[in-house]
Design a protein around this nucleic acid. Structure first.
Lengths: 270, 270
DNA sequence: GCAATAGTGTCTATCAGACAATATGTA
DNA sequence: TACATATTGTCTGATAGACACTATTGC
Protein backbone atom coordinates (compact mmCIF):
# COMPACT_ATOMS: atom_id res chain seq x y z
CA UNK A 1 0.00 0.00 0.00
CA UNK A 2 1.93 3.02 -1.19
CA UNK A 3 1.62 6.35 0.57
CA UNK A 4 -0.05 9.16 -1.26
CA UNK A 5 1.95 11.14 -3.72
CA UNK A 6 2.62 14.30 -1.71
CA UNK A 7 2.00 16.45 -4.78
CA UNK A 8 -1.51 15.00 -5.10
CA UNK A 9 -2.90 17.01 -2.21
CA UNK A 10 -2.32 20.58 -1.03
CA UNK A 11 -0.13 21.03 2.06
CA UNK A 12 -1.79 22.35 5.20
CA UNK A 13 -0.62 23.30 8.63
CA UNK A 14 -2.96 22.26 11.45
CA UNK A 15 -3.16 24.16 14.70
CA UNK A 16 -5.32 24.16 17.80
CA UNK A 17 -6.67 27.38 19.28
CA UNK A 18 -8.16 27.58 22.74
CA UNK A 19 -11.16 29.48 24.04
CA UNK A 20 -10.54 29.24 27.78
CA UNK A 21 -13.48 30.66 29.70
CA UNK A 22 -13.76 31.43 33.38
CA UNK A 23 -15.91 33.63 35.60
CA UNK A 24 -14.05 36.40 37.42
CA UNK A 25 -15.72 39.10 39.47
CA UNK A 26 -19.17 38.34 38.02
CA UNK A 27 -17.92 38.58 34.43
CA UNK A 28 -17.26 35.95 31.80
CA UNK A 29 -13.57 36.17 30.91
CA UNK A 30 -11.33 34.48 28.39
CA UNK A 31 -7.58 33.95 28.26
CA UNK A 32 -5.73 35.98 25.63
CA UNK A 33 -2.03 36.23 24.90
CA UNK A 34 -0.08 39.06 23.32
CA UNK A 35 1.38 38.26 19.92
CA UNK A 36 5.12 38.83 19.75
CA UNK A 37 5.51 38.55 16.01
CA UNK A 38 3.98 39.52 12.73
CA UNK A 39 1.24 39.37 11.58
CA UNK A 40 -0.91 41.10 14.15
CA UNK A 41 2.20 41.84 16.23
CA UNK A 42 1.27 43.30 19.62
CA UNK A 43 -2.39 42.30 19.28
CA UNK A 44 -4.18 39.97 21.62
CA UNK A 45 -4.94 36.49 20.37
CA UNK A 46 -6.31 33.20 21.61
CA UNK A 47 -3.62 30.80 22.83
CA UNK A 48 -2.78 27.97 20.48
CA UNK A 49 -0.10 26.22 18.52
CA UNK A 50 0.77 23.58 15.98
CA UNK A 51 -0.42 20.03 16.27
CA UNK A 52 2.58 17.73 16.42
CA UNK A 53 3.24 14.97 13.94
CA UNK A 54 2.06 12.07 16.11
CA UNK A 55 -0.38 13.93 18.32
CA UNK A 56 -4.14 13.65 18.47
CA UNK A 57 -6.16 16.87 18.21
CA UNK A 58 -7.54 16.66 21.73
CA UNK A 59 -4.08 15.87 23.08
CA UNK A 60 -2.68 18.93 21.37
CA UNK A 61 -5.38 21.09 22.92
CA UNK A 62 -4.75 19.60 26.36
CA UNK A 63 -1.03 20.23 25.96
CA UNK A 64 -1.58 23.85 25.01
CA UNK A 65 -3.96 24.26 27.93
CA UNK A 66 -1.46 23.01 30.47
CA UNK A 67 1.31 25.10 28.90
CA UNK A 68 -0.75 28.27 29.11
CA UNK A 69 -2.61 27.81 32.38
CA UNK A 70 -1.28 24.78 34.22
CA UNK A 71 -4.78 23.33 34.05
CA UNK A 72 -5.14 19.61 33.63
CA UNK A 73 -7.92 18.77 31.20
CA UNK A 74 -10.58 16.24 32.02
CA UNK A 75 -10.99 13.59 29.43
CA UNK A 76 -14.73 13.78 28.71
CA UNK A 77 -14.71 10.04 27.98
CA UNK A 78 -13.30 9.24 31.43
CA UNK A 79 -14.14 11.93 33.97
CA UNK A 80 -12.38 11.55 37.32
CA UNK A 81 -14.42 9.94 40.09
CA UNK A 82 -13.57 12.78 42.46
CA UNK A 83 -13.93 16.25 41.01
CA UNK A 84 -10.48 17.76 40.74
CA UNK A 85 -9.71 21.30 39.73
CA UNK A 86 -9.13 20.23 36.17
CA UNK A 87 -10.90 21.97 33.34
CA UNK A 88 -13.54 20.79 30.95
CA UNK A 89 -12.20 20.57 27.41
CA UNK A 90 -14.12 19.87 24.21
CA UNK A 91 -13.71 20.46 20.54
CA UNK A 92 -15.48 23.58 19.34
CA UNK A 93 -15.20 23.96 15.56
CA UNK A 94 -12.63 24.16 12.79
CA UNK A 95 -11.69 27.31 10.92
CA UNK A 96 -9.93 27.08 7.60
CA UNK A 97 -10.67 30.04 5.35
CA UNK A 98 -7.86 30.19 2.78
CA UNK A 99 -6.80 33.70 3.80
CA UNK A 100 -7.20 33.47 7.56
CA UNK A 101 -3.41 33.46 7.98
CA UNK A 102 -1.52 35.53 5.40
CA UNK A 103 1.61 33.42 5.68
CA UNK A 104 0.25 30.04 4.66
CA UNK A 105 -2.74 27.74 4.61
CA UNK A 106 -3.57 27.04 8.23
CA UNK A 107 -6.55 25.04 9.47
CA UNK A 108 -7.24 25.60 13.14
CA UNK A 109 -9.23 23.18 15.26
CA UNK A 110 -10.62 25.38 18.01
CA UNK A 111 -11.32 23.92 21.43
CA UNK A 112 -13.39 25.22 24.31
CA UNK A 113 -12.16 24.96 27.90
CA UNK A 114 -14.16 25.90 30.99
CA UNK A 115 -12.25 26.48 34.20
CA UNK A 116 -12.80 27.79 37.73
CA UNK A 117 -11.40 31.19 38.57
CA UNK A 118 -7.61 30.98 38.57
CA UNK A 119 -4.98 33.14 40.20
CA UNK A 120 -3.08 34.67 37.27
CA UNK A 121 -2.11 33.49 33.83
CA UNK A 122 1.41 32.20 33.47
CA UNK A 123 2.66 32.69 29.96
CA UNK A 124 6.37 32.27 30.41
CA UNK A 125 6.11 34.24 33.62
CA UNK A 126 5.53 37.42 31.68
CA UNK A 127 2.48 39.01 33.25
CA UNK A 128 2.24 41.47 30.37
CA UNK A 129 1.86 38.81 27.72
CA UNK A 130 -1.27 37.02 28.96
CA UNK A 131 -4.42 38.10 30.78
CA UNK A 132 -8.04 37.28 31.51
CA UNK A 133 -10.12 39.63 29.40
CA UNK A 134 -13.88 40.10 29.82
CA UNK A 135 -15.50 38.74 26.69
CA UNK A 136 -17.81 41.73 26.60
CA UNK A 137 -14.77 43.93 26.18
CA UNK A 138 -13.51 41.83 23.29
CA UNK A 139 -16.76 41.25 21.48
CA UNK A 140 -18.98 44.19 22.33
CA UNK A 141 -22.45 44.09 23.83
CA UNK A 142 -24.13 42.17 21.04
CA UNK A 143 -22.06 39.06 21.44
CA UNK A 144 -25.07 36.78 21.48
CA UNK A 145 -26.03 34.21 18.88
CA UNK A 146 -22.86 34.52 16.88
CA UNK A 147 -23.83 37.88 15.49
CA UNK A 148 -20.78 39.67 16.82
CA UNK A 149 -17.68 40.49 14.88
CA UNK A 150 -18.57 38.41 11.88
CA UNK A 151 -16.69 40.80 9.67
CA UNK A 152 -13.46 40.26 11.56
CA UNK A 153 -12.96 36.96 9.79
CA UNK A 154 -12.44 38.78 6.54
CA UNK A 155 -9.32 40.50 7.93
CA UNK A 156 -6.98 41.93 5.37
CA UNK A 157 -3.81 43.41 6.74
CA UNK A 158 -4.50 46.89 5.46
CA UNK A 159 -7.53 47.58 7.65
CA UNK A 160 -6.59 46.18 11.02
CA UNK A 161 -7.62 49.28 12.88
CA UNK A 162 -11.14 49.07 11.51
CA UNK A 163 -11.74 45.63 12.87
CA UNK A 164 -13.00 46.85 16.21
CA UNK A 165 -10.08 49.04 17.19
CA UNK A 166 -6.69 48.22 18.67
CA UNK A 167 -8.21 45.80 21.18
CA UNK A 168 -9.64 43.58 18.47
CA UNK A 169 -8.32 40.03 18.45
CA UNK A 170 -5.88 38.81 15.82
CA UNK A 171 -6.84 36.62 12.86
CA UNK A 172 -10.42 35.33 13.01
CA UNK A 173 -10.19 34.86 16.75
CA UNK A 174 -13.10 37.18 17.48
CA UNK A 175 -15.36 34.81 15.58
CA UNK A 176 -13.88 31.78 17.28
CA UNK A 177 -14.39 33.42 20.66
CA UNK A 178 -17.97 34.35 19.80
CA UNK A 179 -18.68 30.78 18.77
CA UNK A 180 -17.12 29.46 21.97
CA UNK A 181 -19.12 31.83 24.14
CA UNK A 182 -22.33 30.87 22.39
CA UNK A 183 -21.49 27.19 22.85
CA UNK A 184 -20.95 27.72 26.57
CA UNK A 185 -24.13 29.77 26.89
CA UNK A 186 -26.26 27.12 25.30
CA UNK A 187 -24.53 24.13 26.83
CA UNK A 188 -25.05 25.15 30.45
CA UNK A 189 -28.77 25.07 29.69
CA UNK A 190 -29.06 21.36 29.23
CA UNK A 191 -25.88 20.03 30.85
CA UNK A 192 -24.22 20.34 34.22
CA UNK A 193 -21.23 22.10 32.68
CA UNK A 194 -21.76 25.24 34.72
CA UNK A 195 -20.13 23.39 37.60
CA UNK A 196 -16.89 23.41 35.58
CA UNK A 197 -16.69 27.12 36.39
CA UNK A 198 -16.91 26.40 40.12
CA UNK A 199 -14.35 25.13 42.62
CA UNK A 200 -14.78 21.49 43.72
CA UNK A 201 -17.16 22.56 46.48
CA UNK A 202 -19.51 25.44 45.91
CA UNK A 203 -22.81 26.91 47.03
CA UNK A 204 -26.06 27.30 45.13
CA UNK A 205 -25.50 31.04 45.13
CA UNK A 206 -22.07 30.66 43.57
CA UNK A 207 -23.52 28.44 40.87
CA UNK A 208 -26.24 30.99 40.26
CA UNK A 209 -23.67 33.72 39.79
CA UNK A 210 -22.00 31.55 37.15
CA UNK A 211 -25.24 31.35 35.21
CA UNK A 212 -25.79 35.07 35.62
CA UNK A 213 -22.29 35.91 34.38
CA UNK A 214 -22.35 33.53 31.41
CA UNK A 215 -25.84 34.49 30.30
CA UNK A 216 -25.57 38.13 31.30
CA UNK A 217 -28.89 38.11 33.12
CA UNK A 218 -30.25 38.22 36.66
CA UNK A 219 -31.97 35.13 38.01
CA UNK A 220 -34.39 34.85 40.90
CA UNK A 221 -32.35 33.29 43.73
CA UNK A 222 -35.37 31.46 45.15
CA UNK A 223 -36.58 29.87 41.97
CA UNK A 224 -33.01 29.04 41.00
CA UNK A 225 -32.45 27.28 44.31
CA UNK A 226 -35.61 25.26 43.97
CA UNK A 227 -34.86 24.36 40.37
CA UNK A 228 -31.23 23.38 40.78
CA UNK A 229 -31.69 21.34 43.95
CA UNK A 230 -34.68 19.63 42.40
CA UNK A 231 -32.89 18.45 39.27
CA UNK A 232 -31.77 14.88 39.94
CA UNK A 233 -28.04 14.25 39.70
CA UNK A 234 -27.04 17.87 39.31
CA UNK A 235 -25.78 18.54 42.84
CA UNK A 236 -24.81 16.33 45.76
CA UNK A 237 -24.41 17.80 49.28
CA UNK A 238 -20.80 18.01 50.38
CA UNK A 239 -21.70 18.28 54.04
CA UNK A 240 -20.27 21.56 55.22
CA UNK A 241 -21.39 25.15 54.98
CA UNK A 242 -19.63 28.38 54.19
CA UNK A 243 -20.17 32.08 54.73
CA UNK A 244 -17.62 33.22 52.17
CA UNK A 245 -20.35 35.10 50.34
CA UNK A 246 -21.61 36.78 53.54
CA UNK A 247 -25.07 36.41 54.98
CA UNK A 248 -26.55 33.19 56.23
CA UNK A 249 -24.27 30.14 55.92
CA UNK A 250 -24.87 28.23 52.72
CA UNK A 251 -24.65 24.52 52.16
CA UNK A 252 -21.73 23.26 50.11
CA UNK A 253 -22.32 20.99 47.13
CA UNK A 254 -20.28 19.01 44.67
CA UNK A 255 -21.15 18.33 41.05
CA UNK A 256 -23.35 15.26 40.76
CA UNK A 257 -22.87 12.52 38.25
CA UNK A 258 -25.47 13.76 35.81
CA UNK A 259 -24.11 15.31 32.64
CA UNK A 260 -27.43 15.95 30.93
CA UNK A 261 -29.95 17.93 32.92
CA UNK A 262 -33.58 16.89 32.86
CA UNK A 263 -35.40 19.19 33.07
CA UNK A 264 -32.95 21.70 31.58
CA UNK A 265 -32.20 25.11 32.99
CA UNK A 266 -34.11 27.74 31.04
CA UNK A 267 -32.36 30.80 29.74
CA UNK A 268 -34.70 33.77 30.18
CA UNK A 269 -36.09 35.41 27.07
CA UNK A 270 -34.26 38.42 25.75
CA UNK B 1 6.70 38.91 6.12
CA UNK B 2 8.30 35.59 5.23
CA UNK B 3 6.25 32.42 5.00
CA UNK B 4 6.87 29.73 7.54
CA UNK B 5 9.73 27.36 7.05
CA UNK B 6 7.86 24.27 5.79
CA UNK B 7 10.09 22.05 7.91
CA UNK B 8 8.96 23.88 11.06
CA UNK B 9 5.55 22.21 11.14
CA UNK B 10 4.34 18.71 10.35
CA UNK B 11 2.61 18.22 7.00
CA UNK B 12 -1.07 17.32 7.04
CA UNK B 13 -3.65 16.49 4.44
CA UNK B 14 -7.09 17.99 5.10
CA UNK B 15 -10.25 16.33 3.84
CA UNK B 16 -13.98 16.79 4.27
CA UNK B 17 -16.27 13.86 4.96
CA UNK B 18 -20.03 14.06 4.63
CA UNK B 19 -22.78 12.60 6.75
CA UNK B 20 -25.75 13.02 4.42
CA UNK B 21 -28.97 12.07 6.18
CA UNK B 22 -32.41 11.58 4.73
CA UNK B 23 -35.62 9.79 5.69
CA UNK B 24 -36.66 6.94 3.41
CA UNK B 25 -39.55 4.60 4.09
CA UNK B 26 -39.81 5.66 7.74
CA UNK B 27 -36.10 5.04 8.37
CA UNK B 28 -33.18 7.41 8.85
CA UNK B 29 -30.69 6.71 6.08
CA UNK B 30 -27.25 7.95 5.18
CA UNK B 31 -25.33 8.04 1.93
CA UNK B 32 -22.38 5.64 1.70
CA UNK B 33 -20.05 4.91 -1.19
CA UNK B 34 -18.09 1.79 -1.95
CA UNK B 35 -14.32 2.19 -1.67
CA UNK B 36 -12.50 1.18 -4.83
CA UNK B 37 -9.00 1.18 -3.41
CA UNK B 38 -6.95 0.17 -0.42
CA UNK B 39 -7.18 0.57 2.50
CA UNK B 40 -10.65 -0.76 3.28
CA UNK B 41 -11.11 -1.70 -0.37
CA UNK B 42 -14.66 -2.81 -1.07
CA UNK B 43 -15.97 -1.44 2.23
CA UNK B 44 -18.61 1.24 2.53
CA UNK B 45 -17.45 4.71 3.56
CA UNK B 46 -18.83 8.20 3.92
CA UNK B 47 -18.35 10.35 0.84
CA UNK B 48 -15.57 12.90 1.02
CA UNK B 49 -12.40 14.21 -0.51
CA UNK B 50 -9.47 16.55 -0.25
CA UNK B 51 -9.88 20.22 0.42
CA UNK B 52 -8.35 22.17 -2.43
CA UNK B 53 -5.56 24.67 -2.03
CA UNK B 54 -7.67 27.82 -2.23
CA UNK B 55 -10.97 26.40 -1.00
CA UNK B 56 -12.82 27.12 2.20
CA UNK B 57 -13.89 24.14 4.32
CA UNK B 58 -17.61 24.74 3.84
CA UNK B 59 -17.09 25.22 0.09
CA UNK B 60 -15.28 21.91 -0.12
CA UNK B 61 -18.14 20.19 1.67
CA UNK B 62 -20.70 21.82 -0.63
CA UNK B 63 -18.68 20.75 -3.66
CA UNK B 64 -18.52 17.14 -2.48
CA UNK B 65 -22.24 17.21 -1.75
CA UNK B 66 -23.15 18.32 -5.24
CA UNK B 67 -20.72 15.84 -6.76
CA UNK B 68 -22.24 12.93 -4.85
CA UNK B 69 -25.92 13.83 -4.82
CA UNK B 70 -26.54 16.80 -7.05
CA UNK B 71 -27.88 18.62 -4.03
CA UNK B 72 -27.24 22.33 -3.76
CA UNK B 73 -26.34 23.31 -0.23
CA UNK B 74 -28.02 26.18 1.53
CA UNK B 75 -25.65 28.69 2.93
CA UNK B 76 -26.81 28.89 6.57
CA UNK B 77 -25.74 32.53 6.64
CA UNK B 78 -28.00 33.40 3.72
CA UNK B 79 -30.91 30.99 3.39
CA UNK B 80 -32.94 31.41 0.21
CA UNK B 81 -36.17 33.42 0.52
CA UNK B 82 -38.14 30.67 -1.17
CA UNK B 83 -37.43 27.16 0.09
CA UNK B 84 -35.76 25.23 -2.68
CA UNK B 85 -34.92 21.58 -2.59
CA UNK B 86 -31.41 22.34 -1.44
CA UNK B 87 -29.95 20.62 1.58
CA UNK B 88 -28.98 21.94 4.95
CA UNK B 89 -25.21 21.77 5.46
CA UNK B 90 -23.24 22.46 8.61
CA UNK B 91 -19.88 21.60 10.06
CA UNK B 92 -20.02 18.62 12.39
CA UNK B 93 -16.61 17.97 13.98
CA UNK B 94 -13.02 17.29 13.07
CA UNK B 95 -11.29 13.93 13.34
CA UNK B 96 -7.52 13.74 13.37
CA UNK B 97 -6.22 10.73 15.28
CA UNK B 98 -2.68 10.08 14.04
CA UNK B 99 -3.48 6.54 12.88
CA UNK B 100 -6.93 7.08 11.43
CA UNK B 101 -5.54 6.68 7.90
CA UNK B 102 -2.62 4.24 7.60
CA UNK B 103 -1.17 6.01 4.58
CA UNK B 104 -0.53 9.43 6.02
CA UNK B 105 -1.63 12.04 8.52
CA UNK B 106 -5.10 13.10 7.48
CA UNK B 107 -7.35 15.50 9.37
CA UNK B 108 -10.96 15.28 8.27
CA UNK B 109 -13.47 18.05 8.83
CA UNK B 110 -16.78 16.20 8.89
CA UNK B 111 -19.95 17.97 7.77
CA UNK B 112 -23.59 17.10 8.30
CA UNK B 113 -26.12 17.45 5.49
CA UNK B 114 -29.88 16.95 5.82
CA UNK B 115 -31.85 16.37 2.67
CA UNK B 116 -35.35 15.37 1.56
CA UNK B 117 -35.81 11.90 0.16
CA UNK B 118 -34.04 11.67 -3.18
CA UNK B 119 -34.48 9.32 -6.11
CA UNK B 120 -31.21 7.41 -6.26
CA UNK B 121 -27.60 8.25 -5.56
CA UNK B 122 -25.49 9.08 -8.56
CA UNK B 123 -21.88 8.24 -7.94
CA UNK B 124 -20.50 8.25 -11.44
CA UNK B 125 -23.66 6.54 -12.59
CA UNK B 126 -22.60 3.32 -10.96
CA UNK B 127 -25.57 2.20 -8.91
CA UNK B 128 -23.46 -0.40 -7.17
CA UNK B 129 -21.00 2.11 -5.75
CA UNK B 130 -23.33 4.32 -3.73
CA UNK B 131 -26.51 3.73 -1.75
CA UNK B 132 -28.76 5.00 1.00
CA UNK B 133 -28.16 2.77 4.00
CA UNK B 134 -30.34 2.78 7.13
CA UNK B 135 -28.20 4.09 9.96
CA UNK B 136 -29.55 1.39 12.22
CA UNK B 137 -28.02 -1.17 9.90
CA UNK B 138 -24.65 0.57 10.03
CA UNK B 139 -24.51 1.38 13.71
CA UNK B 140 -26.63 -1.23 15.43
CA UNK B 141 -29.53 -0.62 17.76
CA UNK B 142 -27.63 1.29 20.42
CA UNK B 143 -26.66 4.14 18.17
CA UNK B 144 -27.76 6.78 20.65
CA UNK B 145 -25.56 9.22 22.54
CA UNK B 146 -22.41 8.37 20.63
CA UNK B 147 -21.98 5.07 22.39
CA UNK B 148 -21.98 3.02 19.22
CA UNK B 149 -18.98 1.67 17.44
CA UNK B 150 -16.42 3.61 19.42
CA UNK B 151 -13.93 0.84 18.92
CA UNK B 152 -14.09 1.17 15.17
CA UNK B 153 -11.81 4.18 15.32
CA UNK B 154 -8.95 1.97 16.44
CA UNK B 155 -8.99 0.12 13.10
CA UNK B 156 -5.82 -1.77 12.27
CA UNK B 157 -5.82 -3.49 8.93
CA UNK B 158 -5.34 -6.96 10.35
CA UNK B 159 -8.71 -7.16 12.13
CA UNK B 160 -11.15 -5.59 9.77
CA UNK B 161 -13.63 -8.39 10.08
CA UNK B 162 -13.89 -7.89 13.82
CA UNK B 163 -14.96 -4.30 13.53
CA UNK B 164 -18.63 -5.08 13.27
CA UNK B 165 -18.49 -7.44 10.34
CA UNK B 166 -18.13 -6.84 6.61
CA UNK B 167 -20.77 -4.11 6.64
CA UNK B 168 -18.80 -1.93 9.04
CA UNK B 169 -17.76 1.43 7.66
CA UNK B 170 -14.19 2.19 6.69
CA UNK B 171 -11.78 4.27 8.80
CA UNK B 172 -13.44 5.98 11.78
CA UNK B 173 -16.56 6.66 9.75
CA UNK B 174 -18.84 4.75 12.11
CA UNK B 175 -17.94 7.20 14.84
CA UNK B 176 -18.40 10.17 12.51
CA UNK B 177 -21.80 8.84 11.48
CA UNK B 178 -22.82 8.26 15.09
CA UNK B 179 -21.84 11.82 15.95
CA UNK B 180 -23.76 13.15 12.98
CA UNK B 181 -26.88 11.18 13.85
CA UNK B 182 -26.74 12.37 17.42
CA UNK B 183 -26.32 15.96 16.23
CA UNK B 184 -29.38 15.62 14.02
CA UNK B 185 -31.40 13.99 16.78
CA UNK B 186 -30.71 16.75 19.24
CA UNK B 187 -30.89 19.62 16.78
CA UNK B 188 -34.41 18.92 15.56
CA UNK B 189 -35.49 19.37 19.16
CA UNK B 190 -34.79 23.06 19.38
CA UNK B 191 -34.55 24.12 15.74
CA UNK B 192 -36.76 23.84 12.69
CA UNK B 193 -34.21 21.64 10.94
CA UNK B 194 -36.61 18.73 10.65
CA UNK B 195 -38.14 20.58 7.71
CA UNK B 196 -34.85 20.04 5.85
CA UNK B 197 -35.90 16.40 5.55
CA UNK B 198 -39.18 17.37 3.89
CA UNK B 199 -40.00 18.51 0.36
CA UNK B 200 -40.74 22.22 -0.05
CA UNK B 201 -44.41 21.63 0.75
CA UNK B 202 -45.34 19.02 3.30
CA UNK B 203 -48.05 18.04 5.75
CA UNK B 204 -47.97 17.91 9.51
CA UNK B 205 -48.12 14.14 9.32
CA UNK B 206 -45.11 13.99 7.05
CA UNK B 207 -43.18 16.19 9.44
CA UNK B 208 -44.22 13.94 12.30
CA UNK B 209 -42.93 10.90 10.47
CA UNK B 210 -39.59 12.68 10.14
CA UNK B 211 -39.39 13.12 13.90
CA UNK B 212 -40.43 9.53 14.44
CA UNK B 213 -37.81 8.20 12.04
CA UNK B 214 -34.97 10.35 13.34
CA UNK B 215 -35.75 9.75 17.00
CA UNK B 216 -36.92 6.19 16.54
CA UNK B 217 -40.09 6.73 18.56
CA UNK B 218 -43.84 7.02 18.06
CA UNK B 219 -45.47 10.38 18.66
CA UNK B 220 -49.10 11.15 19.35
CA UNK B 221 -50.42 12.65 16.10
CA UNK B 222 -52.89 14.91 17.91
CA UNK B 223 -50.48 16.41 20.39
CA UNK B 224 -47.84 16.73 17.69
CA UNK B 225 -50.25 18.62 15.46
CA UNK B 226 -51.25 21.00 18.22
CA UNK B 227 -47.64 21.56 19.25
CA UNK B 228 -46.15 22.12 15.82
CA UNK B 229 -48.89 24.40 14.54
CA UNK B 230 -48.77 26.37 17.77
CA UNK B 231 -45.04 27.10 17.65
CA UNK B 232 -44.69 30.55 16.09
CA UNK B 233 -42.64 30.72 12.91
CA UNK B 234 -42.26 26.99 12.49
CA UNK B 235 -44.83 26.41 9.75
CA UNK B 236 -46.67 28.66 7.33
CA UNK B 237 -49.70 27.40 5.39
CA UNK B 238 -49.01 26.82 1.72
CA UNK B 239 -52.66 26.91 0.74
CA UNK B 240 -53.37 23.54 -0.79
CA UNK B 241 -54.09 20.10 0.55
CA UNK B 242 -52.92 16.64 -0.37
CA UNK B 243 -54.08 13.07 0.08
CA UNK B 244 -50.76 11.46 -0.79
CA UNK B 245 -50.69 9.81 2.63
CA UNK B 246 -54.25 8.52 2.32
CA UNK B 247 -57.09 9.39 4.62
CA UNK B 248 -58.53 12.83 5.05
CA UNK B 249 -56.83 15.55 2.97
CA UNK B 250 -54.10 17.31 4.91
CA UNK B 251 -53.09 20.94 4.71
CA UNK B 252 -49.78 21.72 3.05
CA UNK B 253 -47.21 23.84 4.83
CA UNK B 254 -43.88 25.41 4.10
CA UNK B 255 -41.05 25.94 6.55
CA UNK B 256 -41.48 29.21 8.38
CA UNK B 257 -38.74 31.70 8.98
CA UNK B 258 -37.97 30.61 12.53
CA UNK B 259 -34.74 28.70 12.97
CA UNK B 260 -34.88 28.35 16.74
CA UNK B 261 -38.03 26.83 18.14
CA UNK B 262 -39.57 28.27 21.25
CA UNK B 263 -40.88 26.22 22.90
CA UNK B 264 -38.73 23.34 21.67
CA UNK B 265 -40.00 19.96 20.58
CA UNK B 266 -39.50 17.44 23.37
CA UNK B 267 -37.89 14.11 22.68
CA UNK B 268 -39.73 11.48 24.73
CA UNK B 269 -37.87 9.79 27.56
CA UNK B 270 -36.18 6.51 26.82
C1' DG C 1 -30.77 46.89 65.50
C1' DC C 2 -29.54 46.52 60.11
C1' DA C 3 -27.77 44.47 55.91
C1' DA C 4 -26.96 40.57 53.36
C1' DT C 5 -27.52 36.10 51.75
C1' DA C 6 -29.92 31.36 52.24
C1' DG C 7 -33.82 28.73 51.99
C1' DT C 8 -39.16 27.45 52.10
C1' DG C 9 -43.93 28.07 50.83
C1' DT C 10 -47.72 29.60 47.89
C1' DC C 11 -50.18 31.04 43.96
C1' DT C 12 -51.17 31.17 38.98
C1' DA C 13 -50.75 30.78 34.08
C1' DT C 14 -49.00 27.70 30.98
C1' DC C 15 -48.03 23.40 28.90
C1' DA C 16 -47.20 18.33 27.92
C1' DG C 17 -49.47 14.17 27.62
C1' DA C 18 -53.64 11.22 27.50
C1' DC C 19 -57.46 10.58 24.91
C1' DA C 20 -62.61 11.48 23.21
C1' DA C 21 -64.80 13.03 19.26
C1' DT C 22 -65.35 14.67 14.65
C1' DA C 23 -64.01 15.49 9.59
C1' DT C 24 -63.02 13.82 5.07
C1' DG C 25 -60.81 11.33 1.93
C1' DT C 26 -60.04 6.07 -0.51
C1' DA C 27 -61.04 0.94 -1.16
C1' DT D 1 -69.53 0.47 4.74
C1' DA D 2 -64.96 0.02 6.56
C1' DC D 3 -60.78 2.17 7.12
C1' DA D 4 -57.18 5.56 7.28
C1' DT D 5 -55.48 9.85 8.31
C1' DA D 6 -56.38 14.79 9.79
C1' DT D 7 -57.92 18.05 13.08
C1' DT D 8 -60.23 20.01 17.17
C1' DG D 9 -61.35 19.84 21.92
C1' DT D 10 -61.08 18.54 26.85
C1' DC D 11 -59.04 17.14 30.99
C1' DT D 12 -55.21 16.61 34.33
C1' DG D 13 -50.82 16.73 36.45
C1' DA D 14 -46.42 19.16 36.39
C1' DT D 15 -43.90 23.31 36.44
C1' DA D 16 -41.83 28.05 35.58
C1' DG D 17 -42.09 32.45 37.28
C1' DA D 18 -43.63 35.94 40.68
C1' DC D 19 -43.16 36.89 45.21
C1' DA D 20 -44.28 36.67 50.61
C1' DC D 21 -41.97 34.99 54.31
C1' DT D 22 -38.57 32.98 57.51
C1' DA D 23 -33.58 31.71 58.87
C1' DT D 24 -28.87 32.77 60.06
C1' DT D 25 -24.81 35.01 59.74
C1' DG D 26 -21.61 39.68 60.29
C1' DC D 27 -21.47 44.50 61.55
Amino acid sequence: MPPYDPSAYPPFAVTVDLVVLTVRRHALCTLVVRRGESPYQGRWALPGGFVRAEEDLGAAAARELVEETGLCAHDPAAPPPVPSNGAHLEQLATYGAPDRDPRMRVVSVAHLALAPDLPAPRAGGDANSARWAPVEELLGEDALAGRAEAAAAAGDAGSEEKEGGPEALAFDHARILADGVERARSKIEYSSLATAFCPPEFTVGELRRVYEAVWGVSLDPRNFHRKVTGTPGFLVPAGGTTTRQGGRPAQLFRAGGATLLNPPMLRPEV
